[in-house]
Nucleic acid binder design. Structure first.
Length: 389
DNA sequence: TGGGGTTAT
DNA sequence: ATAACCC
């Protein structure tokens, strides 16, 4: 429950004031509507965006950092910085060298280990869940909370004159079109602003992007998003990755994998659920087309899953074996190779088996785990099988 | 340019 | 398994 600041709002463009005014009319119409007949399409959703989150976590961990220009470093990148630093011309996602050049007094802390950020992030989500159970996470520092029910209840308690005194105001900001790839494709069609997107032909848009993306982003361009706030709940996957300049031997790969795996096993142990799938991802050195990764995944053998939470049975050794097999399936180790990233992911998480012996549930869960050991019916996606090598 | 995460195909 | 998106 530390105080976390609010990012200073950027100035909205001109026609965004129209949008804000329209939003206000709708809100007033709703607030002023006769009690008991709320507009069923109207929702109240709060978006909580934490301010330079990693930097704040570091300043809470070490209060001596407060008041100093602070940057959080991951490899050669300064992923975020506090406002002292921003005042001195440092920007988010600046190269470390550029940042130091701009601001020689800049204090840097290493933020490659996300453990404390992740923990603080979930504390925030849990705090918000006290207000309403429906909280959707986006990254580590954003949460959406659907407060419709809460607001409806409060409005029912208000008297008419209090309702009429309610005012709502706000801004719609940001005039750019959305994700990187889609923006490129839209630009090729001459669509570069939100207004362009509003006015362009739906048919042309659908032909370029497919009906699903086309219809969604065109609605978004009018500020309309009817997608529900979906509770994130516990994570669907756990992963650890490390990037580096060069990794070119099997021994190095094994060492990196062991490091990643050790942290992951701790995390998965704390979570309590059991992963049923493991995935290895690599990035090759290929100078161009930077963002290309390859991965291989397979089911975790059930005897390994069983040992997972249970103290110090050596689960590392069999897991490393599996990961090295996945690795050799991707990379021909007889040929030279040059990796710049390794990542290990646990996914397909299942709750612990709480079924009691002798019950139908116990029978069903046992028969399922037998199936997954002998057959190939336990998963939808086709995993590589360790036995296939 | 890091170290995560999600959903769709 | 990959591609796209988000932070």
């Amino acid at each position: 429950r530390e105080k976390l600041g609010v990012e200073p709002e950027e100035e909205g463009g001109r026609d965004q004031e129209e949008e804000a005014a329209r939003g206000m009319e709708r809100a007033e119409a709703w607030a002023g509507a006769s009690p008991g007949t709320p507009d069923s399409s109207f929702r109240v959703i709060v978006h909580v965006d934490l301010d330079c989150f990693y930097a704040q976590v570091e300043m809470i961990s070490n209060p001596e950092l407060k008041g100093k220009p602070l940057g959080v470093q991951q490899k050669s990148l300064m992923v975020t910085c506090n406002y002292e630093a921003r005042k001195l011309g440092v920007k988010k996602c600046m190269n470390i060298r550029d940042a130091k050049e701009k601001c020689p007094q800049l204090v840097l802390v290493n933020g490659e280990d996300l453990t404390r950020y992740r923990e603080m992030s979930y504390k925030v989500t849990e705090l918000l869940e006290e207000f309403s159970p429906v909280v959707e996470r986006l990254g580590f520092d954003e949460n959406f909370v659907d407060l419709t029910e809460m607001v409806e209840k409060r409005l029912q308690q208000l008297q008419n004159d209090e309702l009429l005194a309610l005012t709502v105001s706000g801004h719609v900001y940001n005039n750019q079109c959305i994700g990187y790839k889609t923006a490129k494709r839209l630009e090729a069609l001459g669509i570069s602003s939100v207004r362009d997107l509003q006015t362009c032909s739906s048919k042309i848009l659908e032909k370029e992007l497919g009906i699903s993306v086309a219809q969604r982003i065109q609605k978004l361009s009018f500020g309309e998003d009817d997608s529900p706030v979906v509770s994130s709940g516990p994570p669907q996957s756990f992963s650890e990755e490390d990037s580096f300049k060069k990794c070119s031997s099997e021994v190095e790969v094994k060492n990196k994998i062991e490091e990643l795996l050790a942290s992951l096993l701790n995390r998965v142990c704390q979570d309590g659920r059991k992963p049923h799938t493991i995935r290895l991802t690599i990035r090759r050195n290929s100078s161009e087309s930077y963002y290309s990764r390859e991965s291989r995944q397979c089911p975790i053998p059930s005897h390994v899953i069983q040992k997972l939470g249970t103290g110090n049975y050596d689960v590392m050794t069999p897991m490393v074996e599996i990961l090295m097999k996945l690795f050799r399936n991707m990379v021909n180790v007889k040929m030279p190779f040059h990796l710049t990233l390794l990542s290990v992911c646990f996914c397909n998480l299942k709750a612990l088996n709480t079924a009691k012996k002798g019950t139908i549930d116990y029978y069903l869960t046992q028969s399922l785990s037998t199936t997954s050991r002998s057959g190939k019916h336990d998963f939808k996606m086709k995993d590589t099988h360790v036995e296939d090598f």
